Simulated assay, not measured.
Amino acid sequence: MNAATDTAVRDFFDWQDRLAQRVRPLDEARVHGQLITRLQALLRERLRGLPARVWAPGPAVHLAEGARTVHPDLAVSSDEADLCSGLPLHAPSLLIEVATAATAGADRGEGFEQARTLPTLREYVIVEAGRARVDVYRRRADGGWLLDSHGAGEGFVLAAIDGTIEVDALYEGARLR
Score class of each variant (00 low, 15 high):
G144R: 14
R46T: 15
A101I: 04
L146F: 06
R138Q: 14
E113N: 10
P92D: 03
P59M: 10
C84H: 09
S149V: 00
G155W: 01
G130R: 14
A101H: 11
P57F: 04
V127T: 10
A64T: 01
A99R: 02
E110D: 12
Y124Q: 01
R122E: 13
G66C: 12
A75W: 13
A160W: 06
P92M: 03
S77L: 10
V125N: 07
L158K: 02
A64H: 02
R138D: 07
D148V: 05
H90N: 00
L147G: 07
R108V: 00
L94K: 11
L63D: 04
W145I: 09
R131M: 06
L47R: 12
I96T: 05
L94I: 04
V136K: 01
E113W: 14
Q40F: 14
V54I: 13
H71N: 09
S93H: 03
D82F: 12
L43Y: 09
E154H: 01
V54G: 06
T117S: 15
L118V: 05
Y124C: 04
W55L: 11
W145H: 13
E80V: 14
H90T: 12
L158N: 08
E113P: 07
V98D: 00
E65P: 04
E113I: 10
P57L: 03
A99L: 04
V70T: 14
R133V: 05
D107H: 09
F156S: 04
V136D: 00
F156D: 08
R139I: 10
G105W: 05
G49E: 08
S149I: 00
L83T: 15
R48L: 11
S77E: 10
R38I: 09
A115I: 12
Q114V: 08
A60T: 08
V125R: 12
L74H: 11
P59Q: 09
T100I: 06
V76E: 09
G58I: 00
S85P: 00
G163W: 01
A159T: 09
G33R: 13
L39Q: 08
D73C: 05
A152D: 04
H62K: 13
R38H: 11
C84Y: 06
A99W: 06
A115S: 14
A159G: 15
G130A: 13
A141V: 14
A60G: 07
L43E: 07
E154Q: 15
H150P: 05
I96V: 14
P92S: 00
V136T: 02
A67E: 15
L83E: 08
R133Q: 05
V76S: 03
Q114W: 15
S93Q: 11
A41S: 11
R108L: 05
L89R: 00
V70S: 08
R116I: 12
G111V: 03
I96Q: 07
D107Y: 03
P51Y: 10
D107E: 07
L83W: 14
A60R: 12
I126R: 12
G58P: 00
G143K: 01
T100Q: 06
I36M: 12
L95E: 10
A60H: 05
E123R: 03
A52R: 15
R122K: 08
A64D: 00
A75K: 05
L158V: 09
V54A: 10
A101C: 02
L146V: 04
D162Q: 11
P59C: 06
A102G: 09
E97H: 05
E128K: 05
R108F: 00
D107C: 03
G155T: 12
T69V: 13
D73Q: 03
R131A: 04
V157T: 10
D142N: 15
